[in-house]
Simulated assay, not measured.
Amino acid sequence: MSILIKDVSKTFGNYRALDNVSLEVPDGNLVALLGPSGSGKTTLLRIIAGLEVADSGTVLQQDEDITNYSARDRKVGFVFQHYALFRHMTVAQNVGYGLRVRKTPKPQIRERVDELMKLIRLEGLQDRYPSQLSGGQRQRVALARALAAQPEVLLLDEPFGALDAKVRQELRKWLRKLHEEIHVTSLFVTHDQEEAFELADRVVVMNQARIEQIGTPDEIYENPATPFVYSFLGNVNLFHGRIRRGRLRLGETELFVPEHVAVKDAPAVAYVRPHEVKVREQAGEGANIAATIQRVNSAGPLVQLELTRNDDGSPLTAQLSKEESTQLSLEPGVQVYVELKNVRVFPEDKSNQGGGHEIAPDVSDAGDAPPLCAVKDLAAAS
């Protein structure tokens, strides 16, 4: 393992930021730490970098215990959300900063800087200053600086958070291609599931100071392990009911849920994604939940229906293809019947919803630039 986190906990005053977190990061993997603000993902990244000290637990890098090492002594590169470039230095000086601190000979620095400028596709811009670059270009320079000393691990704290949507999308594709070229073990923090699924080999979903689930993007999306993971990954319909011996009762509808045959009698929540709600004009086998259309939104590749269930008045969202929609009479006020596909059921258990303790906000959520000393330490280490 490139990085091994064992039972790490961290508090800030009365706030618990990490609660007994353990994580293995294989060599060469690109891993996303995904979760909402305050889930602990940035705190975990900063502990790996040496910018925060864990209250308990250990951090190992290539089987070496680095728990008490300073940021300068760890073989990591760090990329901040807000670039953290030195404004008075040129691009070349920023990229080569860490090498100069290490007293690397000037010819080697020039060679390495030229190599990295080609790698980040910014050849010819060595003499520009950060203020003369676009946001996307600045973030590439920050990445090159982090890679200058060939770190064993690259850490990125919401690297695209300060950029507009189009630039973020372009940089995501570029970073994935770059990772395939250099294969450095990388961890990046994000609260954007699309970003995590597009970039990462493995995704670590965090919530309230703990890890909820670890897996490939496909595993996380297709088999969410907890109610939080299911609800966090995009729009979802919730149905409240009861389970009795593998039978889920939702109002007047009953579904067979064989994975819960051992449950004698318990309240439960069923989750269904909008594109797995099938709409019919007539009731039939499976399609027996009556609902009334409230709004039809046909803009974009899918048609979205906002409905209200007739039995309990709760809202319901369905997504249909354009082809499916043309075969139905979709107008506000029309009654239809819905069938639920790929229903995921969780017996109600407060332990599945996360702990009740207060959670410290991630450092990155404050929107402040990192301290200059932290930038210098990490730039020098890189």
Results as ranks from 00 to 15, higher is better:
111 E>L: 06
207 N>D: 12
96 G>N: 07
20 N>G: 07
228 F>D: 03
295 R>S: 08
120 I>K: 01
279 V>I: 13
13 G>L: 04
380 A>F: 00
294 Q>Y: 05
376 K>C: 07
176 R>H: 11
8 V>N: 00
233 L>D: 12
58 T>V: 10
61 Q>P: 04
139 Q>N: 11
145 R>M: 11
230 Y>D: 14
207 N>C: 06
256 F>D: 14
203 V>T: 08
24 E>I: 07
352 N>V: 06
305 L>V: 02
79 V>C: 10
234 G>I: 13
88 H>I: 12
177 K>T: 07
144 A>E: 04
97 Y>Q: 07
184 V>A: 01
64 E>A: 12
255 L>F: 12
266 A>S: 15
289 I>S: 09
73 D>Q: 15
214 I>F: 11
9 S>E: 09
198 E>W: 02
248 L>A: 03
224 P>I: 00
9 S>T: 14
336 V>P: 00
139 Q>T: 01
169 Q>I: 05
103 K>T: 08
179 H>V: 06
13 G>V: 06
299 A>K: 13
239 F>E: 02
69 Y>E: 13
316 L>W: 05
108 Q>H: 13
307 L>Q: 03
228 F>Q: 01
92 A>P: 07
19 D>V: 05
52 E>W: 01
291 A>P: 13
49 A>K: 11
308 T>E: 12
127 D>L: 09
130 P>T: 09
52 E>I: 15
101 V>Y: 07
104 T>L: 02
154 L>Y: 10
150 Q>L: 12
168 R>C: 00
16 R>W: 05
367 G>L: 01
247 R>G: 01
301 P>Q: 10
224 P>C: 06
13 G>Q: 05
193 Q>H: 14
326 T>G: 02
371 P>W: 09
292 T>R: 15
262 A>W: 03
235 N>S: 14
96 G>V: 03
54 A>V: 06
199 L>D: 10
321 S>V: 10
317 T>Q: 03
382 S>V: 14
266 A>V: 00
300 G>K: 02
309 R>T: 04
206 M>N: 07
150 Q>F: 04
6 K>H: 09
168 R>F: 09
34 L>P: 04
62 Q>L: 09
84 A>C: 12
85 L>T: 10
33 L>N: 07
230 Y>K: 10
152 E>P: 00
287 A>W: 10
133 L>Q: 01
319 Q>E: 14
150 Q>H: 13
151 P>Y: 12
269 V>E: 08
216 T>A: 13
290 A>C: 13
198 E>L: 15
270 A>Q: 03
252 E>G: 03
317 T>N: 03
359 I>V: 15
151 P>V: 12
288 N>E: 15
329 S>F: 10
205 V>K: 04
145 R>V: 09
132 Q>A: 08
283 A>D: 04
19 D>G: 05
241 G>L: 11
218 D>P: 02
10 K>A: 08
265 D>I: 00
14 N>A: 15
208 Q>G: 06
98 G>A: 08
108 Q>D: 15
205 V>P: 01
184 V>I: 14
187 L>R: 08
19 D>Q: 13
259 E>M: 04
106 K>G: 03
286 G>E: 07
57 G>Q: 05
46 R>E: 11
342 N>L: 05
278 K>Q: 14
